[in-house]
Computed example of a mutant assay.
Amino acid sequence: MSDHTKGRPNMRPGFGTASFALSILFLQPALAQQAPPGGGGHEPEGPGAYASPSAIPKDPAAVDLGIPTSRGLKKLEPIALPQPPPSLQGSDLKLPAIPAFAPQPQPSLNITRPPNALTLHATLGKDGPSIPSDLVWRLFSPDPAADGKLPVIAVAKGGEAVFDVPPGPYILHVGFGRAGVTKRIDFSGRETRETVAIDAGGLRLSAKASADAVLTKDKVHFDIFSEATDEHDRRLVASEVEPGVVIRLNSGNYHVVSRYGDVNAVSRAEVRVESGRITDAVMTQRAAQLTMKLVREHGGEALADTAWSITSMQGDLISESVGAFPSMVLAEGDYVIVARNKDRLFQRQFAVKSGVDSDVEVLTSDLVDPNSPDIGTGD
């Protein structure tokens, strides 16, 4: 072996030259790409390659990745509905008839009623008709509280009451207007229905000052008292009752006071109310309304700043007022009218007749002291 072959790999003759030439052939394109433009490997690197926008594909994804491009919807096209199978086309289907109205089951009125409840309703009298409304039901405990009053257990309103309460004794009070009844009820805890009879009627009041002069509600009102042998033992049942209004009361006797005006026109009567009926009571007022004025002559102008006093013939004071035209209602009888103007007194006697409203003139000549100088106009 020659010196030139020492330290080299063993190669077959002729094969190494061919392989080297083939390697050079494949390396030439790569070397050409790495070389800067214009040749010369020793020159500095210049700018990179430039691609024209017209040369870039409009949809790179479609070109490079194979994704199909999307197109906008141009118009709405109808969707074809599925067709029935050929076996059903043209055949007559026999379907059951559907009624025009299907009745719905109505809810039970007892759907909210407790299964074991105390149900109460009332009648007008023992064998009278049922009372459908305007009732107030109250259940009380029979044992008084610390303040001495019976505690209220439950309250209901209407024609019928349903109480879901524990078993035990109770005190029941049912009110119908100003009528009512109280009774004891022993509830066993099972479903119980009980009827309460209210012995009540109605009272309708009116008043008149004469045969054809019916008094309106702005002039007259009534007070109703219970029956009693002594006046001090009477209990007020209803006050300020207007005429023509029906007041529900327990059957029995009542003392009615009619007041016409605010002075002394008072009328009294004993009235009986019967169960299940409306009693009409017409009360007569023996009184009249009068208007007073102080004038210098009959039909003259009334003097202002005048104070008035009405007294009985015995000197008892009946009423007082101030003004040029005071008006009041007085019971039938004789009176003394006193007018005061600028520290001067004028008076005259006057008789009130029932149902006769009138104007009363007091003349300046009716001086209490005739020696006093004449008064002025009063203005």
Rank of each mutant, 00 (worst) to 15 (best):
A55Y: 06
A55Q: 12
V63F: 12
D64F: 15
L65D: 15
G66P: 01
P68Y: 06
T69N: 11
R71V: 13
R71T: 09
G72I: 07
G72C: 07
K75E: 12
P78I: 01
I79L: 15
P82F: 10
P85N: 15
K94A: 11
L95F: 11
P96N: 09
P96G: 08
I98A: 09
I98F: 15
P99G: 07
A100S: 15
P103F: 02
P105R: 09
Q106E: 13
Q106I: 10
S108N: 09
L109E: 11
L109Y: 12
T112V: 10
T112Y: 12
L120R: 02
T123H: 02
L124S: 07
L124A: 04
D127Y: 08
S133P: 00
V136A: 13
R138S: 07
L139I: 02
D143T: 14
A145E: 11
D147Q: 02
D147I: 07
G148I: 05
L150A: 04
P151K: 02
V152T: 15
A154K: 05
A154E: 06
V155S: 10
K157H: 15
K157A: 12
G158S: 02
G159V: 00
A161I: 02
A161M: 02
V162A: 03
F163T: 01
P167Y: 04
G168D: 06
I171T: 08
V174H: 05
G175K: 08
G175P: 00
G177A: 01
R178M: 09
T182H: 03
I185A: 05
D186K: 08
F187R: 03
F187A: 00
G189C: 06
R190L: 13
